[in-house]
Each structure stands twice: as C-alpha cells, then as structure tokens.
C-alpha cells in the first residue's frame, strides 16, 4: 500500500512535469505550425538559469520567477529573428532550424556551466521529507504533484476565458480568419512562442530541485513529451494531460513490474498507441 502510494506520487510528479512541457510544445505547434526540437533545451536552460539566479538572489522563488522570464525573452528573440524566416516553408526546414537552435543552446550550456552535474536545493519550506507509514517521501515531489495541475488549470482558464487566450485558440484554428478579423498575427506568434518557451523553462526550474542538472537533461524530457503528444494528439489540451499522466504513471509503476527494463515503457506505450489508435487518444484521421 505504501509503495503503491509512493509510486503513485512519483508517477504523478513526473507526469505533471511532462504535462507542462508537452503543453508548450503542443501550443506552439497548434498556433505557429512549428514543431520545436529545441523545446527540451529551453527546459534545461530554465533549470540552469534558475540555479544561476539563485547565486545572485539566494532564493529559489526568485530563480523560478526570473529564470523562465529570461528564457521567454530569448524565445521572443529567436521567434523574431529566426523562426519568422521559415513560416510557410517546408516542415522539414522548420524542424532543422529548431534543431540548429538546439545544437547551439546545448553546447552553450556545456560551455557556460561545464559538463558536470549541479544540484539545486529546494526552498526551506519544501525541503525535507514527510513520513508515509514506515517510509519517507520528499516534500518537494508532493509540491510538484500539486503545482503541476495548478499551472495546468491556470492555463486552461487563460485559454478558455481570457481575451488573449481566446485569440490564440482562434488563431490556432484558422490563421487566415484571425488575420481577417484584425488580429495582429505576427505579434500573436511572438507571444505564443514566448509562452511556449516560458512553459518549458518554468518546467525546468520546477524540476531543478527534483533532479540533478546536466547538459543532457533536456533529452529525456523532449523525447518523452514527443511520445506524449503523439499519443495525446498534437494541439490537444486534454490529450497532453492524459498522455502525460499515463506515461508518468506507467513509468513509475514500470519500475515495480519490469525492473531495469522499465526504460522501455515509453516506447511500448508509443508502439501500442500507434497500433491501436494511430491518430492518438482523441485524434481522428485527417
């Protein structure tokens, strides 16, 4: 029972991180039509900047507030200077451009912070462990389990009820019509890309006290969030949520039943979805 609870919490906390990352990926794709390979690099950059800012302003909260904002500004720059040149071009060129950004960012992180591991301490209020029967569990992970859905809910409210949220959804559905009714689409694209990068970086900052920082930390998250969006359907909010949750839980319970073979879990899920529902949980053939 206790180990069940612990696995459940592990699965939920990882699932929530995956959800935040997939959400940024899927929103950017839905509006800009661009699959961002560098999304995992923004995740990593968020974590590293959070750590860096904690050196200047020694509080986790300042790190998690400022770090992702800096990354979002970088996102604005990248959208304005680079991505803007390839809208409407062949999909593979857009992919390659974001891949080039990934190469630059990953190597830049390696140059600036070195190839080794770094650790970020959780804030005092969230550090330590609580007891769960006979076992202990880190408080911070519980925080992740709660923070993830809260951010998700906030975003959902934003998309559903705010003016900007509705504009973004309208533009995602029909770009030409959005232009026709006077929405400044170029501006909107910048905002959405900045939002996407912010989400990735925020996820990274959230993850920073939860895992050690290394230049390869963006890798696992981007691959798994790709799997999430293939399973959930690209551009789908509930799809990203369901996909992330299922993958997170499968992985944590996978350790119980499969031992070291649990690394295969994401791929087994991907294969199963492609076999049974090739267009995702909520997807339909187009």
């Amino acid at each position: 029972m206790e180990s069940f609870l612990i696995n459940l919490l592990n699965g939920l906390s990882w699932g929530m991180l995956l959800f935040l990352i997939s959400l940024g990926l899927t929103t950017v794709f839905g509006v800009l039509g661009i699959l961002n390979f560098a999304h995992g690099s923004f995740f990593m950059l968020g974590a590293y900047l959070c750590m860096q800012i904690m050196h200047i302003m020694p509080s986790f909260w300042s790190g998690i507030l400022v770090g992702p904002l800096v990354v979002a500004l970088l996102g604005v720059l990248i959208e304005r200077v680079l991505l803007r040149k390839v809208y409407g071009r062949d999909i593979s060129f857009q992919l390659l451009l974001t891949f080039a950004i990934l190469l630059v960012l990953d190597d830049a992180v390696r140059i600036i912070w070195g190839p080794g591991y770094h650790v970020v301490e959780p804030p005092a209020i969230l550090s330590g462990v609580f007891t769960l029967g006979t076992r202990t569990y880190p408080v911070y992970r519980l925080f992740l389990v709660i923070a993830g859905p809260l951010v998700g809910l906030a975003l959902w409210l934003f998309f559903q009820f705010s003016r900007w949220g509705r504009i973004i959804r309208a533009a995602a559905m029909d770009r030409e019509m959005a232009e026709g009714v006077g929405i400044r689409v170029p501006m909107l694209f910048t905002v959405v890309f900045a939002l996407g990068t912010w989400l990735a970086a925020f996820g990274g900052a959230l993850a920073a006290p939860h895992q050690s920082l290394a230049p390869s930390m963006g890798e696992r998250i981007i691959i798994e969030s790709f799997i999430v969006v293939v399973c959930g359907g690209m551009g789908s909010f509930p799809g990203a949520f369901a996909g992330a949750l299922i993958l997170g839980l499968f992985e944590s319970f996978g350790t119980v039943f499969l031992g070291s073979a649990q690394m295969a879990v994401p791929y087994i899920l991907l294969a199963a979805v492609l076999l049974v529902r090739p267009y995702g949980f909520f997807g339909r053939e187009v």
Partner: peptide, 21 residues
C-alpha cells in the same frame, strides 16, 4: 511497421523515439 502509419512531423517524432529506444 509502426512508423509508416504517420507522416510529416509525427514521422519525425516517432522515428526519433524509436531510434532512441
């Protein structure tokens, strides 16, 4: 057998995933 069910960006994501597998 699994990858060819989708194309475009999905194909890119899926082949990346299985390559990493």
């Amino acid at each position: 057998f699994l990858c060819v069910r989708r194309d475009e960006i999905y194909f890119a994501m899926i082949t990346l995933g299985f390559g990493m597998m």
